[in-house]
């Protein structure tokens, strides 16, 4: 996380009164699935959206024909942990750099970015050099994608550890359900 950006949701408030502390164990990872450009192939993006939902994530899908500006603004307002870009049009070499640049301008380098769709294997290295963590082509499983996200999102994203708030001082899951 860059210095300019806001403190993360895992930071502890100082002199924190006892009220309403809860661990983040239950916090789902938030992902934006976006289709940049004029690409009209949306089956893959929909499959991934549903799949990640079934993997326990909160997935925001914004539909076809998104400009880089729209994608970054949605990611900013939704404060997502990760952005998955789906592209089958071949325009990734134009669109991905613009998206990454905008993320940087908004101090959002801590957001995990990954991609899927039709991207020639020989172009993968240059895509990764932009800061895009992985490329998932046809035939990749949701499980692989979900595992990749869980392993690479920023540490406060609510993974299974629950270590962000200390031990027995935390809310227990059943607290919610008992109501």
């Amino acid at each position: 996380m860059s210095q300019q950006s806001a403190p993360t949701a895992g930071d502890q408030g100082q002199n924190q009164p006892e009220m309403v502390s809860e661990n983040f164990r239950e916090r789902p990872i938030r992902v934006l699935i976006a289709k940049p450009g004029l690409d009209g192939h949306d089956r893959g993006a929909k499959v991934v959206t549903r799949g990640l939902r079934d993997a326990g994530m909160e997935v925001i899908y914004t539909g076809l024909h998104q400009t880089p500006e729209m994608i970054v603004e949605a990611a900013l307002q939704e404060d997502v942990d990760a952005i998955g870009l789906s592209i089958l049009s071949g325009a990734h070499n134009v669109l991905f750099p613009r998206i990454m640049k905008l993320l940087k301008e908004n101090q959002m380098e801590d957001v995990l970015v990954f991609a899927g769709g039709i991207i020639p294997p020989e172009e993968e290295p240059q895509i990764r050099a932009l800061g895009i963590g992985a490329v998932f082509g046809p035939g990749t499983t949701i499980e692989d994608t979900a595992n990749f996200i869980r392993q690479n999102v920023r540490p406060d994203a609510g993974l299974a550890s629950g270590e962000t708030s200390g031990g027995s001082e935390t809310w227990v899951d059943a607290g919610d359900k008992g109501q």
Binding site: D11, G13, Q16
Partner: peptide
């Protein structure tokens, strides 16, 4: 912070 009931939310 608020949505996740972060320990920082009350402050």
């Amino acid at each position: 912070f608020v949505e996740n009931r972060s320990p920082a939310a009350p402050a």
